[in-house]
Protein backbone atom coordinates (compact mmCIF):
# COMPACT_ATOMS: atom_id res chain seq x y z
CA UNK A 1 0.00 0.00 0.00
CA UNK A 2 1.29 3.42 -0.89
CA UNK A 3 2.05 5.75 1.98
CA UNK A 4 -0.04 8.53 0.49
CA UNK A 5 -3.22 8.31 -1.54
CA UNK A 6 -5.01 11.29 -3.01
CA UNK A 7 -8.12 11.01 -5.09
CA UNK A 8 -10.14 13.58 -6.99
CA UNK A 9 -13.67 12.94 -8.19
CA UNK A 10 -14.70 13.67 -11.76
CA UNK A 11 -16.11 16.98 -10.55
CA UNK A 12 -12.84 17.93 -8.89
CA UNK A 13 -10.83 16.70 -11.85
CA UNK A 14 -12.92 18.82 -14.17
CA UNK A 15 -12.09 21.84 -12.05
CA UNK A 16 -8.41 20.97 -12.15
CA UNK A 17 -8.58 20.63 -15.91
CA UNK A 18 -10.42 23.91 -16.25
CA UNK A 19 -7.68 25.57 -14.28
CA UNK A 20 -5.08 24.22 -16.66
CA UNK A 21 -7.03 25.15 -19.77
CA UNK A 22 -7.60 28.62 -18.37
CA UNK A 23 -3.90 29.29 -18.57
CA UNK A 24 -3.60 28.21 -22.18
CA UNK A 25 -2.83 30.97 -24.58
CA UNK A 26 -1.99 30.90 -28.21
CA UNK A 27 -1.06 33.81 -30.36
CA UNK A 28 -0.24 33.71 -34.00
CA UNK A 29 -0.19 35.97 -36.96
CA UNK A 30 0.45 35.23 -40.57
CA UNK A 31 -0.16 36.58 -44.01
CA UNK A 32 -0.23 35.14 -47.48
CA UNK A 33 -0.84 36.19 -51.02
CA UNK A 34 -3.28 34.09 -52.95
CA UNK A 35 -3.08 35.86 -56.26
CA UNK A 36 -6.31 37.79 -56.64
CA UNK A 37 -6.32 38.57 -52.98
CA UNK A 38 -4.10 38.55 -49.97
CA UNK A 39 -5.04 37.96 -46.39
CA UNK A 40 -3.49 38.23 -43.00
CA UNK A 41 -4.61 37.48 -39.52
CA UNK A 42 -3.62 37.91 -35.95
CA UNK A 43 -5.19 35.72 -33.31
CA UNK A 44 -5.06 35.11 -29.64
CA UNK A 45 -6.93 32.18 -28.27
CA UNK A 46 -8.03 30.85 -24.95
CA UNK A 47 -9.88 27.76 -23.87
CA UNK A 48 -12.91 27.39 -21.73
CA UNK A 49 -15.38 24.79 -20.55
CA UNK A 50 -15.65 21.28 -21.80
CA UNK A 51 -17.29 18.06 -20.78
CA UNK A 52 -15.25 15.45 -19.00
CA UNK A 53 -15.48 11.73 -19.26
CA UNK A 54 -13.23 9.49 -17.22
CA UNK A 55 -12.43 6.12 -18.73
CA UNK A 56 -11.47 2.81 -17.22
CA UNK A 57 -8.46 2.50 -19.51
CA UNK A 58 -6.47 5.07 -17.54
CA UNK A 59 -7.52 7.87 -19.86
CA UNK A 60 -9.97 10.70 -19.87
CA UNK A 61 -11.67 12.60 -22.62
CA UNK A 62 -12.67 16.22 -22.81
CA UNK A 63 -15.21 17.20 -25.39
CA UNK A 64 -16.70 20.47 -26.52
CA UNK A 65 -13.95 22.61 -25.07
CA UNK A 66 -14.54 26.06 -26.43
CA UNK A 67 -11.68 27.64 -28.29
CA UNK A 68 -12.42 31.32 -28.05
CA UNK A 69 -10.67 33.72 -30.34
CA UNK A 70 -10.32 36.60 -27.93
CA UNK A 71 -8.60 38.40 -30.75
CA UNK A 72 -9.07 37.60 -34.38
CA UNK A 73 -8.09 40.47 -36.58
CA UNK A 74 -8.51 39.50 -40.18
CA UNK A 75 -7.39 41.64 -43.05
CA UNK A 76 -8.43 40.94 -46.58
CA UNK A 77 -6.97 42.83 -49.48
CA UNK A 78 -8.63 42.48 -52.83
CA UNK A 79 -6.34 43.41 -55.62
CA UNK A 80 -8.58 44.92 -58.25
CA UNK A 81 -6.43 46.13 -61.07
CA UNK A 82 -8.50 46.38 -64.17
CA UNK A 83 -11.79 45.88 -62.47
CA UNK A 84 -13.46 48.67 -64.29
CA UNK A 85 -16.89 50.02 -64.66
CA UNK A 86 -17.13 50.26 -68.41
CA UNK A 87 -17.88 53.59 -70.00
CA UNK A 88 -21.39 54.23 -71.06
CA UNK A 89 -22.51 56.65 -73.68
CA UNK A 90 -23.36 60.16 -72.71
CA UNK A 91 -23.54 61.63 -76.21
CA UNK A 92 -24.68 58.98 -78.61
CA UNK A 93 -24.43 59.49 -82.26
CA UNK A 94 -27.58 58.89 -84.24
CA UNK A 95 -26.44 55.42 -85.27
CA UNK A 96 -26.30 53.99 -81.77
CA UNK A 97 -22.65 54.74 -81.67
CA UNK A 98 -21.14 56.90 -79.04
CA UNK A 99 -19.50 60.28 -79.21
CA UNK A 100 -18.92 61.06 -75.58
CA UNK A 101 -18.99 58.44 -72.92
CA UNK A 102 -19.31 58.48 -69.19
CA UNK A 103 -15.71 57.82 -68.45
CA UNK A 104 -15.16 54.24 -67.45
CA UNK A 105 -13.18 53.98 -64.29
CA UNK A 106 -11.44 51.28 -62.43
CA UNK A 107 -11.68 50.36 -58.79
CA UNK A 108 -7.97 50.10 -58.90
CA UNK A 109 -5.34 49.14 -56.42
CA UNK A 110 -5.78 47.05 -53.37
CA UNK A 111 -8.92 47.45 -51.39
CA UNK A 112 -8.26 46.29 -47.89
CA UNK A 113 -10.80 45.57 -45.25
CA UNK A 114 -10.11 44.93 -41.61
CA UNK A 115 -12.54 42.58 -39.99
CA UNK A 116 -12.57 42.26 -36.27
CA UNK A 117 -13.73 38.71 -35.86
CA UNK A 118 -12.92 38.56 -32.17
CA UNK A 119 -15.30 36.28 -30.40
CA UNK A 120 -15.41 33.59 -33.04
CA UNK A 121 -15.10 30.14 -31.64
CA UNK A 122 -13.98 26.71 -32.49
CA UNK A 123 -13.99 23.63 -30.34
CA UNK A 124 -11.77 20.89 -29.16
CA UNK A 125 -14.22 18.25 -30.22
CA UNK A 126 -12.25 15.54 -28.51
CA UNK A 127 -9.14 15.42 -26.41
CA UNK A 128 -8.11 12.04 -25.11
CA UNK A 129 -5.29 11.86 -22.65
CA UNK A 130 -3.76 10.04 -19.76
CA UNK A 131 -1.75 11.43 -16.89
CA UNK A 132 1.98 11.27 -16.66
CA UNK A 133 4.06 12.21 -13.63
CA UNK A 134 7.35 13.92 -14.30
CA UNK A 135 10.15 14.83 -11.99
CA UNK A 136 11.47 18.25 -12.75
CA UNK A 137 14.98 19.13 -11.72
CA UNK A 138 15.54 22.81 -12.08
CA UNK A 139 18.50 23.22 -14.41
CA UNK A 140 19.53 26.29 -12.48
CA UNK A 141 19.99 24.22 -9.36
CA UNK A 142 23.66 24.01 -8.39
CA UNK A 143 25.22 20.64 -7.78
CA UNK A 144 26.27 21.32 -4.21
CA UNK A 145 22.90 22.58 -3.04
CA UNK A 146 20.78 20.71 -0.56
CA UNK A 147 17.06 20.61 -1.14
CA UNK A 148 16.68 23.45 1.32
CA UNK A 149 19.35 25.49 -0.48
CA UNK A 150 17.45 24.91 -3.71
CA UNK A 151 14.16 25.97 -2.18
CA UNK A 152 15.59 29.11 -0.65
CA UNK A 153 17.13 30.00 -4.02
CA UNK A 154 13.88 29.36 -5.84
CA UNK A 155 15.12 26.31 -7.73
CA UNK A 156 13.56 23.40 -5.92
CA UNK A 157 12.72 20.17 -7.66
CA UNK A 158 9.12 19.55 -8.54
CA UNK A 159 6.83 16.64 -8.97
CA UNK A 160 4.55 17.42 -11.86
CA UNK A 161 1.56 15.59 -13.22
CA UNK A 162 0.96 16.43 -16.84
CA UNK A 163 -1.91 15.67 -19.12
CA UNK A 164 -0.47 13.45 -21.80
CA UNK A 165 -2.66 13.77 -24.90
CA UNK A 166 -3.34 10.74 -27.00
CA UNK A 167 -5.17 12.83 -29.55
CA UNK A 168 -6.54 16.32 -29.97
CA UNK A 169 -9.19 17.13 -32.51
CA UNK A 170 -10.12 20.72 -33.23
CA UNK A 171 -13.14 21.63 -35.31
CA UNK A 172 -13.06 24.12 -38.11
CA UNK A 173 -13.47 27.69 -36.98
CA UNK A 174 -17.13 28.45 -36.67
CA UNK A 175 -17.79 31.47 -38.83
CA UNK A 176 -21.39 32.61 -38.69
CA UNK A 177 -23.35 33.07 -41.88
CA UNK A 178 -23.75 36.73 -41.08
CA UNK A 179 -20.12 37.19 -42.05
CA UNK A 180 -21.49 37.59 -45.58
CA UNK A 181 -23.14 40.86 -44.68
CA UNK A 182 -20.20 41.97 -42.61
CA UNK A 183 -17.75 41.36 -45.42
CA UNK A 184 -20.04 42.90 -48.01
CA UNK A 185 -20.48 45.98 -45.85
CA UNK A 186 -16.76 46.21 -45.24
CA UNK A 187 -15.97 45.93 -48.93
CA UNK A 188 -18.71 48.42 -49.76
CA UNK A 189 -17.26 50.83 -47.24
CA UNK A 190 -13.82 50.31 -48.68
CA UNK A 191 -15.11 51.10 -52.15
CA UNK A 192 -16.95 54.12 -50.80
CA UNK A 193 -13.72 55.28 -49.29
CA UNK A 194 -12.26 55.39 -52.76
CA UNK A 195 -14.78 57.99 -53.80
CA UNK A 196 -14.05 61.66 -53.38
CA UNK A 197 -15.91 63.18 -50.50
CA UNK A 198 -17.77 65.68 -52.66
CA UNK A 199 -19.44 62.95 -54.68
CA UNK A 200 -23.18 63.24 -54.08
CA UNK A 201 -25.08 60.31 -52.68
CA UNK A 202 -27.05 59.64 -55.83
CA UNK A 203 -23.83 59.47 -57.79
CA UNK A 204 -22.43 56.98 -55.32
CA UNK A 205 -25.55 54.89 -55.69
CA UNK A 206 -25.28 55.12 -59.45
CA UNK A 207 -21.72 53.91 -59.38
CA UNK A 208 -22.58 51.15 -56.94
CA UNK A 209 -25.41 50.13 -59.26
CA UNK A 210 -22.87 49.90 -62.06
CA UNK A 211 -20.70 47.72 -59.85
CA UNK A 212 -23.58 45.37 -59.21
CA UNK A 213 -24.09 43.23 -56.14
CA UNK A 214 -20.95 43.39 -54.01
CA UNK A 215 -21.45 39.84 -52.87
CA UNK A 216 -21.12 38.74 -56.50
CA UNK A 217 -18.06 40.88 -56.85
CA UNK A 218 -16.51 39.32 -53.77
CA UNK A 219 -17.34 35.74 -54.61
CA UNK A 220 -16.09 36.24 -58.12
CA UNK A 221 -12.84 37.83 -57.11
CA UNK A 222 -12.14 35.43 -54.29
CA UNK A 223 -13.18 32.40 -56.26
CA UNK A 224 -15.75 31.44 -53.66
CA UNK A 225 -17.86 28.50 -54.66
CA UNK A 226 -19.48 27.95 -51.27
CA UNK A 227 -20.72 30.52 -48.81
CA UNK A 228 -18.46 33.31 -47.65
CA UNK A 229 -18.66 31.90 -44.13
CA UNK A 230 -17.46 28.49 -45.27
CA UNK A 231 -14.80 30.06 -47.43
CA UNK A 232 -13.48 32.13 -44.53
CA UNK A 233 -13.61 29.21 -42.15
CA UNK A 234 -11.67 27.10 -44.63
CA UNK A 235 -9.18 29.89 -45.28
CA UNK A 236 -8.40 30.34 -41.61
CA UNK A 237 -8.74 26.73 -40.55
CA UNK A 238 -7.10 24.89 -43.42
CA UNK A 239 -5.34 27.23 -45.79
CA UNK A 240 -3.65 29.17 -43.03
CA UNK A 241 -3.67 25.93 -41.05
CA UNK A 242 -4.89 27.44 -37.81
CA UNK A 243 -6.68 24.25 -36.83
CA UNK A 244 -3.54 22.18 -37.17
CA UNK A 245 -1.48 24.79 -35.38
CA UNK A 246 -4.01 24.85 -32.57
CA UNK A 247 -4.04 21.09 -32.24
CA UNK A 248 -0.28 21.02 -31.98
CA UNK A 249 -0.17 23.94 -29.57
CA UNK A 250 -2.86 22.44 -27.35
CA UNK A 251 -1.20 19.04 -27.27
CA UNK A 252 2.17 20.58 -26.55
CA UNK A 253 0.73 22.82 -23.86
CA UNK A 254 -0.96 20.03 -21.96
CA UNK A 255 1.97 17.68 -22.38
CA UNK A 256 4.72 19.95 -21.23
CA UNK A 257 3.79 23.54 -20.54
CA UNK A 258 1.36 23.57 -17.68
CA UNK A 259 0.99 20.64 -15.31
CA UNK A 260 -2.32 19.59 -13.92
CA UNK A 261 -0.74 19.39 -10.53
CA UNK A 262 2.69 20.11 -9.21
CA UNK A 263 4.37 20.37 -5.87
CA UNK A 264 7.78 20.80 -4.51
CA UNK A 265 9.98 17.87 -3.63
CA UNK A 266 10.82 17.52 -0.81
CA UNK A 267 7.39 18.75 0.13
CA UNK A 268 7.27 21.24 3.01
CA UNK A 269 4.98 20.03 5.79
CA UNK A 270 6.00 22.59 8.38
CA UNK A 271 7.01 26.10 7.44
CA UNK A 272 10.16 27.81 8.63
CA UNK A 273 9.47 29.32 12.00
CA UNK A 274 11.44 31.20 14.62
CA UNK A 275 14.69 30.72 12.77
CA UNK A 276 14.09 27.02 12.34
CA UNK A 277 14.29 25.56 8.88
CA UNK A 278 11.14 24.22 7.23
CA UNK A 279 10.45 20.53 7.53
CA UNK A 280 10.38 18.90 4.14
CA UNK A 281 9.36 15.41 3.28
CA UNK A 282 10.81 13.58 0.28
CA UNK A 283 8.15 12.12 -1.98
CA UNK A 284 8.93 9.06 -4.03
CA UNK A 285 7.25 6.84 -6.60
CA UNK A 286 4.56 9.28 -7.59
CA UNK A 287 1.93 7.69 -9.78
CA UNK A 288 -1.24 9.13 -11.28
CA UNK A 289 -3.97 6.97 -12.67
CA UNK A 290 -7.52 7.39 -13.83
CA UNK A 291 -10.48 5.12 -13.68
CA UNK A 292 -14.07 5.72 -14.58
CA UNK A 293 -14.73 7.35 -11.23
CA UNK A 294 -11.73 9.41 -10.24
CA UNK A 295 -8.14 10.44 -10.54
CA UNK A 296 -5.87 8.70 -8.08
CA UNK A 297 -2.43 9.95 -7.12
CA UNK A 298 -0.26 7.72 -5.00
CA UNK A 299 3.19 8.22 -3.57
CA UNK A 300 5.55 7.05 -0.89
CA UNK A 301 7.42 9.00 1.70
CA UNK A 302 11.13 8.70 1.17
CA UNK A 303 13.41 7.65 3.97
Amino acid sequence: MSHITIAASAKAFQQLFNEVEKNFSFTKSDSANFGPFSASYSVSVHLSGGNLQLNNDNTFEMQDVDIVFGTLDFKLCLDLPGFCIPSFCIVPDPWNGCLVGFPGFCIGGPICVDLNLSGLTSQITDLKASLVPKYYVDPARLAGWTDLDAELNGHSNQWQIYIDPVWVNVALIDVPATIDNILVNAITNAIHNLFPSWLPGWAVDLIMAFLGPIVDLITSLLGITTSIAEWLSNLLSNVFGLVGLLETAIADYFASKYPLYQFEDPFPVLPASGGLIPVKIPIRNLAATIDSQEMIVQANVGA
Binding site: D114, L117, Q123, A171, P176, I179, I182, F195
Partner: peptide, 18 residues
Protein backbone atom coordinates in the same frame (compact mmCIF):
# COMPACT_ATOMS: atom_id res chain seq x y z
CA UNK B 1 -25.20 59.84 -45.95
CA UNK B 2 -22.18 59.29 -48.06
CA UNK B 3 -19.42 59.80 -45.61
CA UNK B 4 -16.07 58.22 -45.23
CA UNK B 5 -16.55 54.77 -43.85
CA UNK B 6 -13.83 54.96 -41.23
CA UNK B 7 -13.17 52.01 -38.96
CA UNK B 8 -16.03 50.13 -37.49
CA UNK B 9 -15.98 46.99 -35.45
CA UNK B 10 -17.86 44.34 -37.28
CA UNK B 11 -20.24 43.15 -34.64
CA UNK B 12 -20.63 39.45 -34.79
CA UNK B 13 -23.68 37.76 -33.43
CA UNK B 14 -23.41 35.34 -30.62
CA UNK B 15 -22.00 32.06 -31.76
CA UNK B 16 -24.07 28.99 -31.68
CA UNK B 17 -22.37 25.88 -30.52
CA UNK B 18 -21.77 23.29 -33.14
Amino acid sequence: EHTRGGWKKAALPEQKRK
